[in-house]
């Protein structure tokens, strides 16, 4: 009920909201709340959060467990919807979309990178990279060449015929990054992307993120590791479902 009401409200607000939206905003939260109902209790995982992520930004979203960062990640990745408030991806209000459109939006605009890589074991590297492409309405042509280029770019070289289990953790994460990049997303969402990797490999992956960032990719790292958080330009700290602080680590790279 509450969801429907907010949906109706947002539709009327949308026109004005869109006009006011910063054209550089890739993702924007407006008074977003996410409430889970557990029996009679209501858990406010996110409570009236507003924030904006611009094109080319490199953010780290940090917080202890229970701070709401997973909820925020799910909302940012469009696999969950706000209970109240509105979330815009590249100017599109998520609440107006049906399930299929939301899937298409994820495919086109969001690149997911997971802690445990989540490659599909029965497919080889090249096929894994191409998975998001084939779910688009129009996969396009020259896909294999494109996938090879991206594999090259993330440092996989020619290991494109291997199955995931034949690769090291670092290599698997590179495949996952390539997969996230195949559809040229507006937003790269990394969920504890280095959590399963050793220090050496973590460094390599973070360098790759730096490179992608300097190429203009918008990156959001969700992490609880301070060392990883330091690598981002901006750090958002969450606590109890609200933004605790926003800080700049270093100046934005000149482009």
């Amino acid at each position: 009920m509450a969801e429907e009401k907010s949906k109706a409200m947002n539709v009327s607000l949308e026109a004005t909201a869109k006009a006011a939206a910063d054209t550089r905003a890739v993702a924007e939260f407006r008074n977003v709340s996410r409430i889970y109902r557990m029996g009679d209790n209501e858990v406010h995982a996110l409570d009236d959060v507003s924030c904006r992520f611009n094109a080319g930004d490199y953010w780290a979203i940090m917080g202890s467990s229970g701070s709401g960062k997973s909820t925020m990640l799910n909302l940012l990745g469009c696999i969950d919807r706000p209970t109240n408030g509105e979330y815009y991806v590249s100017g599109t209000a998520v609440s107006t979309l049906n399930d299929d459109d939301l899937s298409e939006l994820r495919g086109r605009h969001i690149g997911f990178i997971f802690q445990s890589f989540n490659l599909i074991p029965q497919l080889n590297v090249l096929e894994n990279i191409l998975v998001p492409r084939f779910y688009l309405e129009d996969p396009g042509i020259g896909l294999v060449e494109r996938a090879r280029d991206i594999a090259e770019r993330v440092g996989l070289g020619s290991r494109t015929d291997h199955r995931p289990r034949e690769l090291s953790g670092g290599q698997q994460q590179r495949v996952a990054i390539a997969r996230a990049l195949i559809n040229d997303p507006s937003l790269l969402l990394a969920d504890e992307a280095t959590g399963n990797l050793d220090t050496q490999t973590t460094e390599e992956i973070l360098e790759l993120f730096d490179e992608l960032h300097s190429d203009g990719m918008t990156i959001l790292l969700v992490t609880h590791e301070e060392e990883v958080g330091k690598r981002a330009e901006q750090v958002m700290r969450l606590k109890d479902g609200a933004i605790e602080s926003v800080a700049y680590n270093r100046p934005t790279i000149q482009r």
């Binding site: 399930d99 994820r106 997971f114 779910y135």
Partner: peptide
């Protein structure tokens, strides 16, 4: 999990 990953990567229900 594979289903979740595929959905996150843009797979529609169909």
């Amino acid at each position: 999990r594979e289903i979740g990953v595929r959905r996150a990567l843009g797979a529609k229900k169909r």
